[in-house]
Design a protein around this nucleic acid. Structure first.
Length: 875
RNA sequence: GGGGUGUUAGCUCAGCUGGUUCAGAGCACCUGCCUUACAAGCAGGGGGUCACUGGUUCGAAUCCAGUACGCCCCA
């Protein structure tokens, strides 16, 4: 039989994924006999392609889901995508542009037709990619935030919250994205330190030719929108300007000089130009001092007619031009280089323009309180818990949520304006008309008189309903799915969206189901490159995930990602991790190859009872640990524990212990036990490495049609014989001692040695003789009373071990080695004695600790005695 | 500037309420091995003043305070 020496993931992965799907193992429906286990996917953007963050995130979800499925729960992982209004709209606009179509020239309906076409064509890519990773989602349940049912949910919630008085319309300073031509929420703005110039500009004092004050600004183009100069009332330098006016350069518009403690006397010149329409702080200042706001910018970032100058030109071009012009007429005093914080659009990377505009807002205070306490009181647990503090501080400082976006791709706000400028909010046009008639008393109104709001809702306004809407919990609040699957169990997501997604889902869940939407939130880190830089397209430092899967196999990549990603910590990704994952696959593969290759001889006795007993205990001990890691969401640690169990305990020790000589048959009992162990191991490995494990599971023996690892029963905790584990450890220490001697003396493993033991623990060691002989290639073990001449010896515990050497042994070197060890042990004993002679320690320490100290003392004394005897034998 | 969080081996991290040989793991590194499951491997090994300073304690990587540096969030 020819099984390849290395594991080839490719066909295996395609084969089993198709098979699992065809058998319907991913599908879930409510089953009252089983405990539900539900996960909703953080919906990736429809525009998205799989990146390393998705890989990590979805691997973790898949591990949780597969384990739950094997634990006999009704596991349901709901996949889907969100419509990502800004990103998608930008993508569609760009696509149309390439075709020579300008968005401004087509109607909303035409645009949406194009957008839907685009979505149908490209929107599913990311989900297809997830399949390559092995994600065991219930694909029949795939949802999309803009599909009909989810849209209905959004509108229903909007109307409901409006009627409860939680949604209002207001003029606010918003973050305006001039490239996307829409308002953004605070969370969609990324602040970066950039190098800028600080322009010092002279403003003439009105009526005082030749008298100037100087302001410092990074944005000279906004002077055209200035409506005041502000000075700190405590600033001695400028007291003479009280009650005067200044002239805006170039246009000579007079503006008042006002005084307010807001101004930082240290910054710039201490004179602040106030542009209420284009800066949040200036806006608030303007409110306090009743200043007018002059909005000089168009939505696309060009200047409008109110600026008077440079109309139609872009703000950054104007900045340069205006600086030149000011310089030419002598009003530019100087420029200096500074670094300052500038906001950029998360989606388009355009510089954000603070802008006054009419927007829709959702009031947060009422929704906030229960959502805050559900986390603080651990109804929802964050993993790792350090995020609790962050959550609280954000919730404490929460501000109203700007939910309108000036886009077409999204759910259109269900507000309908009447000819008189008032509006109604309704689920649909008919209802709006009825309301309008009622509100105005005008029964002649027709639908033609109503004009629906042009804006759409923020994408998060759909996503925050996700755990409910994917089960149609708004349309049909009592349906079987929502009753069974909600609340979901675990949510796996990134900390950067803890607030604007996770927190809002909690609010929506509590508001609409009176129940938290999930019980645990596992926060993954950010995947960075090995230099610690965030992976990004522009840096080109992100590997192509599908390419990685191609190279290392999905199992290899999954384990690679997990090897180094404790919850909440960033993952410094290095392809070497995937290599390690692939190597692990190969190790498993070869263990299987070894076992598969054995022939049984039914007549043979089982010589491996001890080894089998030992591994059984070892497995159970490891299993206990692994379960503990899982219960704390320590996935990396769980994987590492499995890794060591497989590699060290199963392969390096157990298989070596039971392995028959080359081409010799094995007895039936050992083989059966070994296959059973392999199966148990495969179970523990399956959530991490679904493909290779299913392949081996199916191949190691005949299976029935329904016998698949993916649905096999997760192991149960069983008895651990700790005494046996301890004794085996001691026996393996002896093996280690012998191997050490071989290494230091350059004796190859193939050369058999003999061993003499001087010990009080004869009866304990005796049962392990065969194992020691096999693993250390020892031909015979004898027990002796006297030290052995011409041997190399070592001490473990209170026992001495002698390996007779051919030829001469370097006596001096051996003696020195032993003396060193003796010294160390004596030092150790001294420290223990010191503790034990300390009255306060003896009185203060718990009995357990004391007992251990006495044990240490006894062990050290025994070892010292043995060492001293060995050393004495040299003389 | 405010808040959070962290600093343990070359790298990534464990180390729970102070007390086992507690200074650990994986990777990397070094040495020797192509020993018929696996060189994508086997066997062995070296490596850290637990950021710094002080305090509490019989006892501190662990608790407290301060300092330095880093990261995150907010302004």
């Amino acid at each position: 039989m020819a099984i390849s020496k290395t594991y080839n993931p490719k066909e295996v992965e395609e084969k089993w994924y198709a098979n699992w799907q065809q058998k319907g193992f991913f599908r879930s429906k409510p089953n009252p006999k089983k405990e539900p286990y539900t996960v909703v996917i953080p919906p990736p953007n429809v525009t998205g392609v799989l990146h390393m963050g998705h890989m990590l995130n979805n691997t973790i979800q898949d591990i949780l889901v597969r384990r739950a499925r094997m634990q006999g729960k009704e596991a349901c992982w709901v996949p889907g995508t969100d419509h990502a209004s800004i990103a998608t709209e930008a993508r569609v606009v760009a696509m149309l542009k390439e075709k020579g179509i300008n968005k401004a020239d087509i109607s909303r309906e035409e645009f949406l037709t194009h957008a839907w076409e685009w979505k149908e064509k490209y929107g599913g890519i990311i989900l297809e990619q997830l399949k390559k990773l092995g994600a065991s989602c219930d694909w029949d349940r795939t949802r999309f935030t803009m599909e009909e049912s989810l849209t209905e949910a959004v509108l229903q919630v909007f109307v409901d919250l409006y009627r409860k008085g939680n949604i209002y319309r207001g003029i606010r300073m918003v973050n305006w994205d001039p490239a996307g031509k829409t308002a953004l929420s605070d969370e969609e703005v990324i602040h970066k330190q950039v190098n800028s110039k600080l322009y010092h500009i002279n403003y003439q004092i009105a009526g005082e030719e030749g008298n100037y004050l100087t302001v410092a600004t990074t944005r000279p183009e906004t002077i055209l929108g200035d409506t005041a100069i502000c000075i700190n009332p405590n600033d001695a330098r400028y007291q003479h300007l009280k009650g005067k006016q200044a002239l805006v350069p170039l246009i000579n518009r007079p503006i008042p000089i006002i005084f307010d403690e807001y101004v930082d006397m240290e910054f710039g010149t201490g004179c602040l130009k106030v542009t209420p329409a284009h800066d949040l702080n200036d806006y608030e200042l303007g409110q306090r001092h009743n200043l007018p706001s002059i909005d000089i910018l168009n939505d696309d970032g060009t200047l409008n007619s109110k600026a008077q100058l440079y109309v139609g030109e872009d703000r950054f071009i104007v900045r340069k031009k205006i600086a030149k012009e000011l310089e030419a007429n002598g009003q530019l005093v100087k420029t200096e280089d500074i670094t300052n914080n500038v906001g950029f659009s998360e989606r388009t990377d355009a510089v954000i323009e603070p802008k006054l505009s009419m927007q829709w807002f959702l009031r947060m205070e009422k929704l906030r309180d229960p959502a805050l306490s559900s986390v603080m009181e651990d109804q929802i647990k964050l993993h790792p818990p350090k995020f609790k503090n962050m959550y609280r501080s954000w919730m404490d400082n929460i501000r109203d949520w700007c939910i309108s976006r000036q886009l077409w791709w999204g759910q259109r706000i269900p507000a309908y304006y009447l000819p008189d400028g008032s509006f109604v909010v309704a689920h649909n046009l008919e209802e709006a008309l009825a309301l309008a008639k009622e509100q105005t008393g005008n029964t002649d109104l027709t639908t033609a008189d109503l004009r629906q709001d042009e804006d759409v809702l923020d994408t998060w306004f759909s996503s925050w309903l996700w755990p409910i809407s994917v089960f149609d919990g708004f349309k049909d609040p009592d349906n079987a799915d929502i009753q069974y699957y909600y609340p979901t169990n675990d949510l796996v997501t990134a900390p950067e969206i803890l607030f604007f997604w996770v927190a809002r889902m909690i609010m929506a869940g509590l508001e609409y189901r009176k129940e938290v939407p999930f019980k645990n939130v596992y926060l993954t880190g950010i995947v960075r490159d090995k230099l610690g830089r965030k992976m990004s397209k522009s840096l080109g430092n992100s590997p192509d995930p599908l390419n990685l899967i191609e190279q290392y196999g999905a199992d290899g990549v999954r384990t690679g990602m997990l090897f180094s990603s404790p919850a909440g910590n960033d993952l410094l990704f290095d392809e070497k991790l995937c290599e390690q994952g692939r190597n692990f696959s190969n190790k498993i593969w070869n263990a299987y190859r070894l076992i598969k290759g054995w022939e049984v001889n039914e007549d043979l006795e089982n010589p491996n009872e001890l080894a089998i007993k030992w591994f059984d205990s070892k497995f159970n001990a490891a299993f206990e640990q692994i379960e503990d890691h899982f219960s704390k969401f320590r996935m990396s640690d769980a994987l590492m524990a499995v890794y060591k169990l497989v590699w060290d305990d199963f392969c390096s020790y157990y298989l070596e212990m039971i392995k028959p000589a080359y081409q010799s048959p094995i007895d039936k009992k050992t083989l059966d036990a070994t296959i059973a162990f392999l199966e148990s191991i495969l179970k523990l490995l399956h959530p991490f490495m679904p493909f290779i494990t299913e392949e081996i599971w199916q191949d190691i023996k005949e299976r029935s049609d329904k016998d698949y690892l993916i649905i096999a029963k997760w192991p149960k905790a069983d008895v651990v014989d700790t005494i046996l584990l301890e004794r085996m450890e001691k026996a393996m220490d002896i093996v280690g001692g012998i191997r050490n001697v071989r290494n230091s003396k350059n004796i190859p493993q193939t050369k058999a040695l003999s061993l003499a033991i001087k010990t009080q623990e004869h009866s304990i060691l005796k049962p392990f003789e065969a194992l020691i002989q096999k693993l250390a290639n020892i031909t015979g073990i004898t027990y002796v009373e006297e030290n052995q001449e011409g041997s190399i010896n070592f001490v473990i515990g209170g026992s001495e071990f002698f390996i007779p050497m051919e030829g001469t042994v370097d006596l001096e070197a051996e003696k020195d080695r032993l003396i060193k060890e003796l010294e160390y042990t004596k030092g150790f004993l001294a420290s223990v004695d010191k503790k034990l002679s300390n009255e306060r320690f003896v009185n203060g320490a718990p009995a357990q600790v004391l007992e251990k100290e006495w044990q240490k003392k006894a062990d050290a004394e025994a070892k010292i005695k043995a060492l001293e005897q060995s050393i004495a034998a040299f003389d």
